[in-house]
Simulated assay, not measured.
Amino acid sequence: MDVDKMSDSDDDVPRLSAETMAALQEFYKSQELTEASDVQSGISENWNLSQFWYTDATAEALAKETLRAAGSTGRIACVSCPSLYKKLQQLKPATCTTVLLEFDKRFSVYKDFVFYDFNTPLELANLQKNTFEVVVADPPYLSEECLSKTAQTVRFLSSGKVILCTGAVMEDLAADLLGVTMCSFVPSHARNLANVFRCFTNFDTHYLNQGNS
């Protein structure tokens, strides 16, 4: 083997500039952080738990309305709606408190996670009664039992304002249990659902285009 020729050919290999190398390293670091965040957040839906994530547009609209209603120093409880909780973490001011009540223990990576089973609606760790300016709930199942038990949780936690996301067929029961009315805003999911899904509130909204006078 001709050592000199091998060395010459090595010199012909294209080399990246220092700036390009730095940009690549930054890109790979960003990708690693994103992947780690996705794993930590447990973002993949578990259909066995009846999980269906909101689209980003729906999560953002709900998050903005929730933050508007809670105020900059308000307390927000997210009951069985982890994709909304994740969006709130991106948008909320540091002075705003959020808590996630969720059955799926993958979300225990969040410091504000509280294990929640709608079958035992008032087993809420150390959460105090009527201490949340806004409670947002998305019961996992379209059944009278599930909504009724989730409503017990909502009434216990709420100091006034409620946002409920559930099937349109639950409208009358939702009104009876929580005094909410249907908004014109129609939530959407990353995976289309067979059931018509709607949003209900008991207060005047801005981002959800609803007046409950």
Rank of each mutant, 00 (worst) to 15 (best):
K92Y: 08
K92L: 08
K92H: 11
R106G: 01
L49A: 10
P139L: 04
Q152D: 12
L84G: 05
Q128M: 13
I163M: 10
V162I: 12
E65F: 01
V162W: 00
K111N: 13
Y54D: 07
L164Y: 03
F113C: 04
D56P: 09
L164S: 01
R155E: 05
C96Q: 05
T150S: 11
F113I: 03
S143R: 04
D56K: 14
P140N: 05
P82Q: 04
K87E: 09
N46A: 11
F115N: 10
K92M: 06
F52Y: 11
F52I: 07
C96S: 07
R75N: 14
L157W: 07
K64V: 01
P121R: 13
P93D: 04
D117Q: 06
K87Y: 07
L127A: 05
A59L: 03
P139K: 02
V136K: 04
N46L: 11
D117L: 11
V136N: 03
S72M: 09
V135P: 02
V154Y: 00
C146E: 03
S80Q: 11
Q89W: 08
S148M: 03
T58C: 06
A69F: 05
L147V: 14
A77P: 00
E65H: 02
A94Q: 12
A57N: 14
F107Y: 14
Y141K: 06
A69I: 07
E45G: 08
K105Q: 14
W53F: 10
Q90L: 15
G71C: 01
T120R: 15
T55I: 13
C81A: 09
R106N: 12
R155Y: 00
T66C: 06
S108L: 05
Q90C: 09
V135W: 01
T98M: 08
W53M: 12
